[in-house]
């Protein structure tokens, strides 16, 4: 572009270039300032993970509080790992994520393939619209949906149980059924989204491949297996890597709102993110909270890099970076 402006590097060329750089920098600036204040400044707060945070009563500003809090080394981390809570929340976070990554891929890819095989496009579009709907609702709204079924006195399932003379399950006090409930809730909200993504990838496949295959006598299953799946493999890989990178992060809303923040359910509903929140707000222990999120960040980063490296070894083109 600059070539067309001035082929020879005259004084005017340089000032025009400087002007352009200034203009573009001024465009970046609002965003950059926001990033500094809300993303980079808090990174210094990571020191909290190594401190025993106390309010400095003489001048209780954030900076003074941090400055005058005592260094405690790895005490916060040690404490994190000596409690049974930490084992539970790490197991829950990784367990749910691993299960949901696999289920999510299998179900969403199947739905996308099915939708693509339908001959009536209008019907297919309607299905897609309906199954995408839950993605647009918040977990607060979803928690009411769940409550409509599980409420101990009025919920639909509780009522069916009592009408059949069965013992009514106290859903919000019994942690055992929650792995299933949370799995259903998660799939309910997110399968439509992944299906749409895979569908977009399938729509991009060159259809002559299918025609050639059908002339060769390949049946539908063989076509799906040998043409559709290999063609959308990069998409599957990308979503897989991104999800593995987030394996130590949980969807806070799901784990906080859907079980109604109910204490007896913590054995199956406590995850790193809810712990980080509860340590900060309920027990006001920012040190422990920061330690847990730092751990989360580091493990997440390693997982992402690890997943990417493995994928690159298997299939160079599919890797993220």
């Amino acid at each position: 572009m600059s070539d067309s402006l001035a082929p020879t590097k005259t004084k005017g060329y340089h000032s025009a270039k400087r002007k352009k750089t200034w203009a573009l920098t001024s465009m970046v600036l609002p965003g950059a300032i926001w990033l500094v204040l809300l993303r980079y400044l808090p990174m210094f707060g990571i020191v909290l993970a190594f401190k025993d945070y106390q309010i400095y009563t003489r001048a209780p500003t954030l900076f003074h509080n941090i400055q005058h809090s005592e260094w405690v080394g790895l005490k916060n981390f040690k404490f994190l790992f000596t409690t049974t809570d930490s084992w539970i929340m790490i197991r829950n976070t990784i367990g749910y994520n691993a299960l949901w990554i696999v289920l999510g891929i299998v179900i969403a890819v199947s739905f996308a393939v099915m939708l693509n095989e339908l001959t009536n496009r209008f019907v297919a579009k309607t299905y897609q619209t309906l199954m995408f709907f839950p993605y647009f609702l918040s977990w607060v709204v979803a928690s009411y949906f769940v409550q409509a079924f599980l409420d101990p006195t009025r919920g639909l399932i509780s009522n069916i149980q009592s009408n059949l003379g069965m013992e009514v399950t106290s859903w919000y006090n019994d942690s055992k059924p929650w792995p299933v409930i949370l799995t259903i809730a998660n799939l309910w909200k997110n399968v439509g989204y992944s299906t749409v993504l895979y569908l977009a990838a399938i729509a991009g496949i060159d259809t002559t491949q299918y025609e050639a295959a059908s002339i060769e006598g390949a049946n539908k299953w063989q076509q799906v297996w040998h043409i559709t799946i290999p063609n959308i493999r990069p998409m599957i890989t990308i979503l897989f890597i991104m999800n593995v990178g987030k394996i130590f992060n949980a969807d806070f809303g799901l784990f906080y709102n859907v079980p109604m923040n109910s204490g007896p359910l913590f054995p199956t509903t406590q995850v790193v993110d809810t712990y980080v929140y509860r340590a900060l707000m309920a027990t006001s222990n920012p040190g422990m909270s920061t330690a847990a999120s730092l751990l989360q960040n580091v493990v997440g980063f390693i997982c992402l890099m690890g997943a990417n490296t493995i994928i690159r070894k298997l299939d160079e083109e599919s890797s993220l970076f």
Binding site: K20, T21, L24, A32, L35, L37, M43, S293
Partner: peptide, 28 residues
């Protein structure tokens, strides 16, 4: 042709990989 393009690209996308966490962000 923006001179600091690379810098500001990394500046933005790095925050997707790493962050201060809830407690420091809340306090800031």
């Amino acid at each position: 042709d923006y001179k600091y393009r690379r810098f500001f690209t990394i500046f933005c996308f790095f925050t997707m990989l790493f962050g201060g966490g809830l407690a420091p962000t809340y306090m800031v």
